[in-house]
Design a protein around this nucleic acid. Structure first.
Length: 546
RNA sequence: UGUCCCGUGGUGUAAUGGCAACACUGCAGAUUUUGAUUCUGCCUUUCUAGGUUCGAGUCCUAGCGGGACAACCA
């Protein structure tokens, strides 16, 4: 237990509320709209809302904000639930704003009866026109003066389906000259003859966000309704409705949304990438979605650690993607199983090693994880090493292989490069080496010490695999600052597919298993794998201080 | 030319009127059978100007800078 508290501003509010006895315990909610997949920004919100309830012994509801049937689908509902659970959280109740449609309708009637709402026949253009601008007040229209009886009748007719889409709306009657534009008689209900993923065709009028979200909070007795900064102006309306509807006083608090370098966090734009097949789907490992992160191999623990590290505040931020990668490496370093894979093979022949011989050499699965044991790697006369680990004319501080030089083959022997074989064009095609039999790993009596250690595989037993190497999706650091089409900023090299040569043990990889390919990075088996073609995703590279 | 929100190292986040700190990044070094990991050190910080106070990153005022607000989206 640490002494210091270091609370974020929401925790301070909660602790003050609890200390003052304002609530017996807290209730939060995570309120996604099922019109897309969850992304890293949602992870911040999920960790915040669920984390707060966990910390203070409260509970969190998962509530789908499904008030716009035109964009919402069950497919999204299912994936959102899966993502929240994958992140490691369990909701108290699975709820839907659409469950409250009957109650919401009654609340609207109540507002009408109080003379605080009216039916407006204006077109959306007219309403926008009459609304004024942030610097100019709006003007009321004649519909504002309709009687309570007429409003009641008209609203009932709207519900009954007597009018086409757009013919009428229900608006709150507040103040057309209000300095806050959201208080200039906001639209509460609109007509949409659309099929809803849960209520079907039972309704043809649907509440707007402002007449659904806060009311749902009240119905569920949410104590702390936490949302992002763009809802700050809505808070005044949120409170006005609570007061005039005389319902449970939930309170809204706003924090700054997550922004990350080289990334977009807009569901609309991510949907565009999916629809236009720029990526393979919402779960493309390059996507900043939770399903993309999962497929790429980011452990949920890392995401939670990341959300913890970035903190919660009210100022705009741009978090370095490197911080997320740090959290991923930190976790994977302790958990990932080590394997050797050569990406760009250079054949080496150990000239003093017997033709027919193969011996099995043990190598640690993970020195960072106690009890993870060893596996056996076949070693023979013909091996592959990384082309990158050989240099004909090495610079000063180079300590891998060069002509006449020595390196250790990890978990095996020290070898010396005796001869460089080239093709007609002068490209190096093969290396002839000798090995030092006394230098066997763990039994080294050779007295020779070398600085370089490289990975390798036996050519005969090597397994061919497909590896997908990912890089950032966009080349521009701050994607919020651009003013042209975001697709102009796509990274043309965000995916590179290569064939690599793996030690035979890797063929036993199971879905979800995380690996470190020695000196190359962290990888996981992709769902595109088949019996005769294993496909691996590169989760993240190793830190490289070469 | 309105209202609201926000200004602390390169990036984030703390410091709750009393010695500006932690993490990431970067740089340097040690260790290392992964140029990884681990360890050590270093660089760099309170937007400006007034005011209140014994004392201001913190409170007040103004300015400057950034963001939000004119969907029958959420």
């Amino acid at each position: 237990m640490t002494e210091e508290k270091n609370l974020n501003f929401i925790e301070e509010i909660i602790e003050a509320d609890l200390a003052a006895g304002n609530y017996p315990s807290i209730t939060t909610r995570f309120p996604p709209e099922p019109n897309g997949y969850l992304h890293l920004g949602h992870a911040k919100s999920i960790c915040l809302n669920f984390g707060l309830a966990l910390k203070y012994g409260g509970k969190t509801n998962l509530r789908f904000d499904d008030t716009n049937p035109e964009t919402e689908e069950v497919e999204y509902v299912e994936n959102i639930k899966q993502d929240v659970q994958w992140l490691g959280f369990q909701w108290a109740h699975e709820l839907y704003a659409s469950d409250y449609f009957p109650q919401l309708y009654e609340l609207a009637v109540k507002l009408i009866k109080k003379g605080l709402a009216y039916v407006d026949d204006s077109t959306s253009e007219e309403i926008a026109e009459q609304k004024g601008t942030p610097t100019a007040p709006g003007k009321p229209n004649p519909y504002r003066q309709r009687s309570v009886e007429e409003n009641l009748k008209l609203f009932a007719e709207m519900k009954a389906g007597n009018y086409p889409d757009g013919a009428k709306v229900l608006r709150a009657k507040i103040d057309m000259a209000h300095v806050n534009m959201l208080m200039r008689d906001p639209v509460l209900y609109r007509i949409k003859h659309a099929h809803h993923h849960r209520t079907g065709d039972a309704w043809c009028i649907y509440p707007m966000y402002d007449f659904a979200h806060g009311q749902s909070d009240s119905i569920e007795q949410i104590t702390h309704s936490i949302c992002t900064l763009e809802f700050v102006p809505h808070r005044e309306l949120y409170n006005w409705l609570i007061k005039n509807l005389e319902i449970y006083p939930s309170r809204q608090y706003e924090f700054a949304r997550l922004n990350m370098t080289y990334t977009l966090m807009s569901k609309r734009k991510l949907l565009q990438l999916v629809n236009e097949k720029v990526v393979t789907g919402w779960d493309d490992p390059r996507m900043p979605t939770l399903s993309g992160a999962r497929r790429r191999g980011y452990p949920p623990e890392s995401l939670r650690e990341f959300c913890d590290k970035i903190g919660v505040a009210k100022r705009d931020n741009l978090i370095d993607m490197g911080l997320l990668e740090f959290c991923v490496r930190e976790h994977l370093n302790k958990t990932a199983t080590r394997r050797m894979v050569v990406f760009d093979p250079l054949k080496i022949i150990i000239t003093n090693y017997p033709e027919e011989k193969t011996e099995m050499l043990p190598s640690e699965n993970n020195t960072e994880r106690e009890g993870s044991g060893v596996r056996e790697m076949p070693f023979g006369r013909v091996l592959y090493m990384e082309k990158d680990d050989f240099m004909e004319n090495p610079p000063k501080k180079y300590f891998r292989l060069s002509p006449g030089g020595m390196v250790r083959l990890k978990s095996a022997f020290i070898i010396k490069c005796e001869e460089v074989i080239k093709d007609a064009n002068g490209n190096v095609t093969e290396l002839h080496c000798t090995y030092i039999p006394e230098s066997r790993s763990g039994h080294d009596t050779s007295g020779v010490s070398v600085k370089g250690v490289i990975h390798w595989v036996s050519a005969k037993e090597a397994v061919k695999i497909e590896v997908r190497q990912y890089e950032k999706l966009f080349v521009t650091e701050d994607m919020n600052s651009i003013e042209d089409d975001f697709k102009n900023h796509l990274n043309p090299h965000s995916l590179k597919v290569v064939t690599a040569y793996a030690e035979p043990e890797l063929a036993k990889a199971r879905p979800g298993e995380q690996f470190q390919f020695l000196r190359m990075g962290y990888f996981c088996l992709d769902s595109d794998s088949s019996a005769d073609q294993l496909v691996f995703n590169r989760t993240v590279t190793l830190r490289d201080s070469k």
